[in-house]
Design a protein around this nucleic acid. Structure first.
Length: 875
DNA sequence: AGTATCACG
DNA sequence: ACGTACGTGATACTG
């Protein structure tokens, strides 16, 4: 017998939520269906994910409740339920009946109270309970046994409130949620609270005094303030509010747990209602699911020796790998499939069979893949070249929407396109320490289902890309780039172990010295790497003034410590310790661990991850090797050419983002400045400060540079004030001056936001998209973030498009000229090569030329370059 | 597993 | 009044 699991649902709250989250849909009879539809989606999800044994949907009973006796204005000022919603309640109730979920309401009580009472009873019987609502009030019911899930965004996105989550989020216990409401009130229920007290203040008071009663017991100890006056004046309101917010947990309900047994839905009845309301997608999906489940028993053939008859001109090619580290991980199986053929070969044996190799390397045999770059790199490990890759599901999905990233597995990716017949990786392999490859049969099935998903999704996903005019971006930029990147990764870059080890020994000595000095100054020994312990030493023992706080305590971040420098000699030692410690752990020890037997590191570029279209680099990350501080920069001395007498060659775009902005905004002054190749930061300083070129001093240029950065990031006065250490007012003035001087830029920024609001997304010069659902949010923070993103993404993303195009051109040029020079790394706006000396002259001309002509903008692109015996020397 | 910190463009 | 710069990844600590 499985353990009982009880799910309690706040019916009214979810119905409202569904109604407002979805546009007002109607069926052919003119019946509104949006709330019913949303409610169905929620039920479907809850039933599938929670698999409850017992369930109840609780409803509010009527107009008045016992709370109105306490406070007649309770829930006053509320908008009347829209008639379009009222008419849907009948359908929702019918639907719930079809699902065979018990429903209940009780006169004079609200759904909250029914749920509170039942969850108490369940708790006493030690039964696991889930409460689902759109109302955060219910979180007061959370306990070890009871999880409260609150709708978050959309209709099926839920946030789980457990006692520890509530502690984390608010610093309160579930019971204190009641006290919080008592102090801050709740506008939606017309609970008054203490005027002027909001969430932040309420939490502060409660963490000091625990309860509303505690606050008033200690009110005399509080310093005189506006807040204190308000608290004193509204004591009675606070108590009434707390009482109103308290869920009744002993309501006189007539249902018992036994009557809440949930037998599962009567699907026939459910389908009938769906049919009546014309929920076509749900009906189709449900039909598709039953159909597809039979598809799971697809016949496949386990191959031990490939034959000509196995191969087709167009197939899915899939390599089942143990984990994502494809440069080293084990090959578990190789799969070839079409809609009618399904072959699998265990392990990596396929690669050693000539027939297979010939097919793999035949450009005219099309391969549909899940991750071309990975499969290419794996093939290369076995001495094979993957050719004819005609489709990459990861890339195609990412281009259609970059929030579908490669960090999701195929199952969740396919779901975005309505395909559900694949298991999650975790379900097949397990997770954490328990992860292991399944038995052959399960493994083959899983690999085959993935291959089938890839086969099925090619057409619809490509059609979608054509519709949004993104097919070229996918097919002519990202897909060819995957091969170029795969080549770079497989080739790798040589790292000199001895150089790093020598630096490591020296660093270790210095670190112990500094550590001893710090401990001596502190008068005790402690862990400097623990922000918690360090905070205690600095701000309690030594008594320095904390400048910033984090969620968990004092901030000891570098910008805080820098402000404290001069107050105590320990500060500069700590900063140095942090700096050197970072070098030691991340760049010496970390990098050493990544050196393969060939003396090289082989990063993996994540081509389908960032929201802007940039690449990212992992295992190791070669896009954040130190450069700004000399001590760190020396790490680059360990990056050397793989052949004697070759050199490292580095070329970077100068001001690519500002040039892109000039092009996109068509700001006259900015365009001209670049066309005349002027120093852009000096030019900005002249305009912002209204001075002549020779009057711009170092500080003015530095400020102008920060303003330029700010503009690219989607400026805010606060952000600029932080970066320049000036007041917000001064920062606002800089920005204002800038936007007046460059009206084209102002127009561009405004337009970015307007078009994002209109279309729901922003685009780059190559039609890369980023969706910004939060741009219309009523939440100030979310909206502000989306607005800055709307300004930044077209710039950062277009720069990414450009260098990607340059890489493809560069690769073709090296190939067609038969050069031995290798492209090794990409670091957002720069490319790193290794070059035989006899090609150096040609490369010095070729690389800048290719990069500068990757695209044509209304401003010139400019490339600087340097070379040397190590990466360090390319300055 | 989440948080703080710090490395890069 | 709100509370922020944009985009990443690796490490150490801590509950």
């Amino acid at each position: 017998m499985t353990n009982p699991k009880l799910v309690l649902i706040d019916g009214n709250s979810l119905a409202y939520r569904a109604f407002f989250a979805l546009p007002l849909l109607t069926n052919e009879q003119g019946i509104h269906t949006n709330a019913t539809y949303g409610f169905t989606m929620m039920l479907q999800k809850i039933v599938e994910e929670e698999q409850p044994t017992h369930m109840l949907i609780a409803w509010d009973a009527g107009k008045t409740t016992f709370r109105h006796a306490t406070f007649s204005e309770y829930k006053g000022g509320r908008q009347k339920t829209p008639p379009e919603l009222s008419e849907q309640f009948a359908y929702i109730r019918k639907l719930v009946d079809a699902y065979q979920i018990p429903q209940y309401e009780l006169d004079q009580y609200e759904a909250d109270d029914i749920i509170g009472t039942l969850s108490r009873i369940a708790e006493e019987k030690n039964i696991e309970t889930i409460v689902i609502s759109g109302d955060k009030d219910l979180t007061q019911l959370a306990s070890d046994k009871t999880t409260v899930q609150i709708t978050k965004k959309g209709i099926t996105d839920l946030e789980s409130y457990t006692p520890s989550y509530i502690q984390e989020k608010y610093g309160l216990t579930p019971i204190q949620i009641i006290d919080m409401k008592g102090l801050m009130g709740d506008t939606s229920d017309n609970i008054p609270g203490v005027p002027g007290v909001g969430e932040k203040t309420a939490i502060k008071l409660l963490s000091a005094y625990e309860t509303v009663e505690g606050v008033y017991a200690h009110i005399d100890e509080m310093k005189a303030s506006k807040m204190k006056e308000k608290l004193v004046a509204n004591e009675e309101l606070a108590y009434i509010s707390k009482q109103l917010a308290t869920i009744e947990r002993a309501a006189p309900i007539e249902v018992t747990l036994d009557t809440l047994h949930y037998p599962g839905p009567d699907m026939e009845a459910v389908h009938e209602i769906w049919h009546q309301l014309q929920f076509k997608t749900l009906l189709e999906k449900s039909a598709f699911q039953t159909e597809a489940k039979e598809l799971k028993d697809i016949d496949f053939e386990v191959i031990s020796s490939w034959e000509d008859s196995h191969f087709e001109d167009d197939m899915t090619f899939h390599i089942e790998l143990y984990d994502e580290h494809y440069h080293t991980t084990e090959v578990l199986a190789v799969v070839l499939a079409t809609d009618s053929k399904h072959y699998v070969m265990k392990g990596d044996a396929a690669f050693s069979q000539p027939l297979f190799k010939a097919w793999l390397e035949d450009d005219s045999k099309q391969k549909r893949c899940y991750d071309v770059k990975a499969f290419q790199a794996v093939s290369k490990r076995f001495g094979c070249e993957l050719k004819g890759a005609s489709f990459d599901l990861v890339l195609a999905a990412y281009i259609s929407d970059p929030s579908i990233s490669s960090s999701q597995d195929l199952a969740s990716l396919a779901k975005h396109f309505g395909y559900t017949e694949v298991d999650e990786e975790e379900a097949v392999y397990g997770k954490g320490a328990k992860k292991k490859a399944p038995e052959d049969e399960a493994l083959f099935h899983h690999a085959l289902r993935k291959a089938t998903a890839v086969w099925e999704l090619k057409e619809p996903v490509e059609a979608k890309l054509k519709e949004t005019k993104q097919y070229d971006l996918y097919h002519e930029l990202e897909l060819p780039l995957a091969s170029v990147l795969g080549e770079m990764e497989s080739f790798g870059i040589k790292v000199d172990r001895e150089t790093l080890e020598k630096m490591g020994v020296e660093l270790k000595g210095r670190l112990t010295e500094i550590e001893q000095r710090i401990h001596a100054m502190a008068g005790e020994s402690f862990n400097i790497n623990s922000p918690k312990q360090l905070g205690v030493i600095l701000f309690e023992k030594i008594g320095l003034t904390p400048i910033k706080k984090t969620k968990t305590g004092y901030s000891t971040a570098a910008d805080v410590l820098e402000k404290l420098q001069g107050e105590h000699e320990i500060i500069s030692e700590i900063l140095l310790y942090r700096q050197l410690g970072k070098l030691q752990s991340t760049y010496i020890e970390g990098l050493l661990k990544e050196i393969h037997d060939d003396g090289k590191v082989h990063t993996r570029y994540q081509q389908a991850l960032t929201s802007t279209g940039r690449l990212s680099s992992i295992n190791p990350n070669l896009q954040n090797i130190p450069i700004r501080i000399e001590e760190g920069r020396k790490i680059r001395q360990a990056f050397v050419p793989s052949e004697k007498e070759w050199v490292v060659f580095a070329a970077d775009y100068s001001q690519i983002e500002l040039r892109v902005m000039a092009h996109m905004s068509q700001d006259e002054k900015l365009v001209r400045a670049f066309q005349e190749d002027r120093d852009i930061h000096t030019q900005t300083a002249m305009d912002v400060f209204g001075v002549a070129a020779d009057e711009v001093d170092g500080n003015m240029r530095r400020a102008a540079k920060a303003v330029n950065f700010g503009i690219i990031y989607g400026i805010s006065d606060y952000g600029l004030s932080q970066s320049l250490n000036i007041t917000r007012k001064e920062a606002a003035l800089f920005i204002d001056n800038y936007l007046t001087s460059f009206p084209g830029v102002k127009h561009f920024m405004d337009d970015a936001i307007t078009s994002a609001k209109r279309d729901g997304f922003v685009t780059t010069i190559m039609n890369r998209r980023r969706y910004l659902p939060d741009i219309t949010s009523s939440n100030f923070n979310l909206r502000g973030f989306a607005e800055r993103t709307a300004m930044n993404t077209p710039i950062q993303g277009s720069a990414a498009d450009i260098i990607k195009k340059a890489m493809i051109d560069m690769d073709r040029e090296l190939e067609s000229r038969g050069l031995k020079t290798k492209m090794l790394l990409q670091v957002h706006d720069e490319l790193i090569f290794e070059v035989p000396v006899d090609e150096l002259e040609e490369i010095q001309k070729l690389v800048p030329e290719v990069m500068e002509n990757a695209v044509e903008l209304s401003v010139p692109l400019k490339v600087d370059f340097a070379f040397g015996t190590t990466w360090y020397e390319t300055k």
